[in-house]
Amino acid sequence: MVFAEQHNGKIHPVTFELLSKGRELADRKEVELSSVILGHQIREEAKELIYYGADKVFIFDHPTLKEFDSILYKQNIVSLIREEKPEIVLIGATHLGRSLAPRIAAALNTGLTADCIDLQLDEDGELIQVRPAFTGNILAYIKTKTKPVMTTVRYKVFKARERDPMRKGEIIEKEVKVVEDTGTKILGKIPREAVNISDAGVVVAGGRGLRRPDDLKMLEELASLLGGVVGVSRPLVDEGWASKDRQVGFSGNIVKPKLYVAVGISGSPQHLAGMKDSEIVVAINVDPSAPIFNVADYGVVGDLYEVIPKPIEKIKLRKMKL
C-alpha cells in the first residue's frame, strides 16, 4: 500500500515514484498494489494513482482532511490497514511522511524503516530495506519481523513509470472518522525567507571568471532551468555582486546539492570546504590546471561565455517540445 501525499489537492511526485517501485514489488510477490489518499475534493486527482500503477485506491474525502493533521490522518490510515492488512506500506520520506509514518507504526506496534534509498526482495520474498545512517557514512540493510512492513522512502531515488491514462483500477470511498480537536492546528502558510542555498538540489556557482555583475543573470537562467539556485565564490560577495547568503565556502555556506556547477571558479581550499560533498561536481574553467578540476566529475576546459549558453539552449528547446 502506498500513501499518497497531497498538498492543496496536488499529489506529491514522490508518490508516483513509490507506485512504480510498489508495482514492481507487488508483481514479484503476486499481490495487489493499493494506494490511500486523504484530503478534500480529491476524487479526480485520485485517478492519477491508478494511471501510475495502483490497482485499488482508497479515498478519505472530508473537509477536515484538507490539510495535514497527523492524528486524523493516522486514525483513518490505521483503521484501513487493520481492515486491508497490506504486507508492505510505503510512505514518502518527506517532512510530512516522516512526521506521520512513526505515529502509524507506533499505533500498529510494527517496525518502521526510515528514509530508504533502495528496496529489495530476498529469496524468501522478504523486504530488505536499504538506508544510509551515521550521517551518510554507512548503509544499513534492514528487515522487519512484524506486519505490515513499513518504510519511508527518499524522494527522487526511484523513477516514476510513464503515466498511462488507459490503466483501469478500482476507486473505493471510505468513511471518514472525524475527531473534533486533535490538539494541532495549521494556522497558515508562511512565505519562505531569502534564498537558502544550503538546501538546494542544484547550485550553479559563479566566480571571478565572470566579467560583469550582469553576467550572473546567465547563471540564474541556467540555475532556474535546472531547478536550482545561484551561488558565488567569496570575491563576488566582496565586490558586492551578490549577497553574503549566496557565498559558498568555509566562511559562507556549506552546500551538498545533487549537482554543483562551478563556473569560472578556481577551486581554492576555502571554496572547496563549502562544496566538496556535492554529489556531482561540474567545472567550467579556461585553465586546465585549475584545482577545481581535481574534485570535478565532469569538466570543460573552455571559456564560460561560450560554454554556458549551450546547455541553456538545449534545455529550453526540450522544454518547448514537451
Binding site: L139, A283, F293, A296, D297
Partner: peptide, 19 residues
Amino acid sequence: PTQVVKVLVPPMKKRRSQI
C-alpha cells in the same frame, strides 16, 4: 521488530574526473 541484517561502509566516493 526491525533488525539490521547487514551494514556496508561504502568506500569514499571517487570523482569521475572526466574533463
